[in-house]
Design a protein around this nucleic acid. Structure first.
Lengths: 355, 355
DNA sequence: TTTTAGCACTCTCCATTCCCGAGTGCCAAC
DNA sequence: GTTGGCACTCGGGAATGGAGAGTGCTAAAA
């Protein structure tokens, strides 16, 4: 059943009022907020109808109405007014993005903090590379017992490790090894590094001391961990919200968030610039069933993509949060991929979880 | 005034019971817990005396007793029985320390997580190097527009950065720069890198493109941030505790902890192997006035030292926490400094905040 | 047919009251 | 110095009782 114009206006008023106040909304309040000309009694009839249709809920007889997940969904998909960022906000984001940090993961982490500050909700970042490989190897000879492995990965991240060994080797040995690794370990994924490959590299380099396997295991470790990374910041912000006045509830959610493995299972695929909103029970994870998650993807170039998002109560200022995340993700894409932001950038597009 | 044997026994019983139950302890409970032969009435007299002396407090006229900071202090200094770690516990710690991670800061972070898991309190780690300098420079030429800076720092940490530039340069230029930096930027602190030094390096390398300043600014940034690092994990564990059933209180403390700058101001100087306990008001920071902090130092070699600690309510199982932290710090020292743990290691020594 | 005013009803929230029990301090006796 | 006894105190939980906000329904008005 299609809702009437007035019903939509009422629904919007309820959602927005509830976002502000966190308390059930009554008919009189709706009348004022929606600037309707009809009387509270009429609104009560409409509210009853919206409740029957499942857009609203009533905590108990004689309380005001609270939006259901279905109500929020409709609001997000159709009723939400696009929120323009103020100049202050865009400026704050731009400035933050300016002080680019040397290390990529630090940068991403900082952007997470920024999202927390801007939205006052916990922020999460997830970065995933489709397939990380080594683009280039360097081995820096320090002294006869130690050297540094430097790996340049796809996505232009650099990883390194200092290795001390109990026996000595020559600079020449390292040069040979370097050549061998550059020849046969570049451009391949972790799974392609087999015992045979290591063996043959060892023979090719004439390495009798096991240096090859030391390097290879670092490569494997690096490729295994470089692919993804998840990070959460600002969890404590949940404690300010009335829906988490029960410490236990907050504890469960924070615990869930702090396990990176959980985050990885969030649905990722949106186009850059789009924002994905998951409302309450739309979340797969039990722990998120009465929270909402807003996600935006960014493009980090070289097959790398990432997600930045925030978690909050279903009563969340979706339009502000979505606008901010979209802007941040766009800025990040621009910064990382070096190019212009994706075309949709700036124009907010919400992708839902349409069933 | 010196306390009698019996009074000490009673004080210990009150503290330990309160640690377990978080509720005011009455005379009967003390009798049972301390296995005393005298009657509750006698114990009441002693409790009254201990309260007069400031070791205990009474929330209200007819409640049991709660230890004061002074009471905890005496307990920690004199009454606490040394807690031996169980085999399970030492084994768990050892195992965790085994899977050494490539990056030092990741390792430290993991150890923090371990401390959280073992004590179920939020853990903090602080690492500080007396004076970080660069031991060695390498510049890896990638193509005519990009290269990697690799810095080997004291403490054997390696930092790197990939640099893309809008103009081209030759491999020779990099080699010259590398030589110049190795000659004049090694072994000096951040503050010694002056504009003059950079100028003269630029001339020495015959660099007309500003590469020198790109590298120098990375060096400055690295030295500035490499010195210290602080990290907190497991803040959410506070929420399980009855003293943080008020989300606001928890929020304030977590906020305080999440600002790394605050942690840096914690008193650091203890000998390795010692454990420092700061009880309630002994903490300088207002936010910690009714929490306790237990700290242990570890030695990371090469002038680097660090602190690992946990934060909890004043009602904290000091003996278990101190024993665990001491063991972890010892293990970490051993791992990082490569040598044997400091002599005091294993034998727990508590250093207080004696005024 | 839709809207509105009116009204009885429901339910939460808050403050008040009341009682129970745990624990105390003190006193007199041991 | 120790103990049993006893009156007293205080917090916490259960019970109580409006006040207030908001509803649904009905009947009248538009």
């Amino acid at each position: 059943m299609e809702l009437s114009q007035r019903q939509k206006k009422i629904l919007r008023a309820v959602v927005e009022e509830y976002i502000d106040s966190a308390e059930p909304v009554g008919s009189r309040t709706v009348q004022q907020r929606a600037a309707l000309t009809c009387s509270p009694a009429t609104i009560r009839n409409e509210l009853a109808e919206l409740t029957r249709e499942g857009y609203l809920d009533q905590p108990h007889t004689s309380a005001g109405r609270v939006p259901t997940a279905k109500g929020y969904r409709l609001y997000v998909n159709e009723l939400m007014r696009e929120r323009e960022l103020t100049d202050d906000e865009t400026e704050a984001i731009n400035r933050k993005l300016q002080d680019r940090v040397a290390q990529l993961d630090k940068l991403i982490e900082n952007v997470g903090h920024m999202a927390t500050e801007l939205t006052s909700y916990p922020a999460l970042t997830i970065s995933a590379a489709a397939a990380v490989t080594v683009k280039r190897f360097d081995l820096i000879y320090l002294d006869q017992n130690s050297f540094i492995i430097v790996l340049l990965l796809t996505g232009d991240t650099v990883k390194n490790k200092l290795v001390h060994l109990p026996f000595s080797f020559s600079q020449n040995t390292l040069q040979r090894l370097s050549a061998v690794f550059n020849a046969s370990f570049t451009g391949i994924g972790e799974e392609a590094i087999t015992a045979e490959l290591i063996d043959s590299a060892e023979r090719a380099a004439g390495d009798t001391m096991g240096l090859t396997s030391v390097i290879a295991s670092f490569v494997i470790e690096t490729l295994a961990t470089a692919g993804g990374g998840a990070n959460v910041s600002g969890e404590a912000n949940l404690l300010k919200l009335p829906e988490f006045k029960d410490p236990d509830k907050a504890h469960r959610l924070i615990n869930y968030l702090s396990d990176a493995a959980n985050l990885a299972s969030l649905p990722g695929g949106t186009d850059f610039g789009d924002v994905k909103v998951l409302i309450g029970p739309e979340n797969a994870a039990l722990e998120l069933k009465d929270s909402s998650v807003v996600l935006a993807s960014y493009n980090a170039g070289d097959n790398m993509r990432g997600i930045i998002g925030v978690v909050g109560p279903t009563r969340m200022d979706y339009s502000a949060v979505a606008a901010k995340l979209s802007y941040i993700a766009g800025g990040l894409s621009k910064l990382l991929a070096g190019g212009a932001p994706p075309s949709g950038y700036g124009k907010l597009m919400i992708k839902g979880d349409d069933k």
